[in-house]
Design a protein around this nucleic acid. Sequence first.
DNA 1: TTCATTTCTTGTCATAGGACAAGAATCAAT
DNA 2: ATTGATTCTTGTCCTATGACAAGAAATGAA
Lengths: 193, 193
Amino acid sequence: MDKAQILAKAFNTSSFSPSEMDKMTSLFEFVSFQKGDFVLQQGTVANNLMIVLEGLLRSFAIDPDGNEITTSFHGKGSGVLEVASFFLRVPTKENTQALSDGKGLKISFEGFQELFHSIPNFREAGRARLVNGFFALKNRSLSMITESAENRYLQLLETHPQVIAEAPLKHIATYLGITDTSLSRIRRELSKK
Amino acid sequence: MDKAQILAKAFNTSSFSPSEMDKMTSLFEFVSFQKGDFVLQQGTVANNLMIVLEGLLRSFAIDPDGNEITTSFHGKGSGVLEVASFFLRVPTKENTQALSDGKGLKISFEGFQELFHSIPNFREAGRARLVNGFFALKNRSLSMITESAENRYLQLLETHPQVIAEAPLKHIATYLGITDTSLSRIRRELSKK
DNA sequence: TTCATTTCTTGTCATAGGACAAGAATCAAT
DNA sequence: ATTGATTCTTGTCCTATGACAAGAAATGAA
C-alpha cells in the first residue's frame, strides 16, 4: 500500500485536489521503530504526528510517586500525537515508547502547519480528529468514575483486542487504574465464567 | 465592565484591529440565567459558547445506572463549551445547569465560525483554548488514577475554591468520583487536622 | 541448554470507599 | 412560625482493590 492510499484512509481525502494530494504525500514520510524505542520523551517538545502502520506503542506519564501510568495505547491505524505539546510548542510530560517493532507514517509540526493552512479540508479533518480525541478522553474519564475495573477491562478487550493480546499485563493495569495483581485476579475471575 | 474589556480578558485581543474588535463585540451578547436553568441539554446540539461573568454552573452526564455524574464546574471567568457537540454538530450527552443565578457573554456557533475564519488571531486563541482544555482533561483523568479522593478534594479546594464554597456537596462528590457520604467523611477528617 | 531476568499468578492481610438507613441541620414556601 | 423537602452527617457492615511477598511461568541472551 502506498502513501496516498494510506493517507486516504487516515484522512478523508476524497475531496482533495491532485496537487493537494501531492503536497500531502511529500510531507509524510515512512519511519520504522524497534521495540523499546522512544517516539517521544518527557521534557521535549512533540515534533511529529505519526500514523501507526504496524506494531504497538504506549504513552505513559510518571505519577507523583514515580510510577509509570499508561495513558494510551497506539495500535495499527491510530495516530500518535501529544496534542498539548505539539500544538502549544511546550515540553511534554508524556513518553511514548514502542512495545514492539513496527512502522508508521509521520509528519513534522512544520509539515502539519503547512497542510493545515493550505488545505481547508485538511484543516477540517484535523479539527474533527482533535475533537474526537477530546470526546474519547472525556469518555475514558467518565468510565474511570462510573465503571468497575472489571468492566473497564472488558470494554478495552472489546474496543482494542490488539492491546489485550500484545501489551504486557502491567501496562494494561496502569491504563485501567489498577495494579497488575488486581488485573491478574480479574482475568482469573473472568476465565471461570 | 463593557464587552470589549471582558473579551480582552478572555481572549488575547491585544493584536486585534479595531474592526476586528467591533465584529467581535457585535457577535457576543449578554445573557442571564437563573438557578436551575439548563444552558445545554443532552440530546441537543450545543449551539453556544458562553463566558461566565457571574454565578456558577455545572455540567453532568448520566451514567449507565442513571446517576448524574458531574463532569465540570464553570465559575466566574471560565468558558462553558461542549467541545464535541459544538464543533462536530452532533447531539451531546451532557447537560449544563445553573447552580445559581448569574450572567454571561455568549456567542453562537455561526458567530464563532465567523470569527474563527476571519480573524487569524482569534483562530490561534481558540485553538490554544481547546488544547489547554485537552490538557486539563488529561490531567484530571490522570489524577483519578493516581490520587486518593482526599487529595483530589484538596486539589479542587485549591484550584476552585468557589466550587467548594458554593456547590452542593453531592455534586462535588460525583465530580470527585465518590459518594456524598464519603465526601462528608473526608471533610470531617480534614477538619480534625 | 542453561541461567538470569522479566512477567504473571497467588496468598494473606489491610484499607478506602460503597450501600443502606437513620438522624440532624438547613432551606423554602406559605 | 410551621411544615415539608433538601442537604449533610453519622453508624454499621461489606466489597473491591492495594501492599507486600513468594512462587511459577515465560522469555531472552550466552
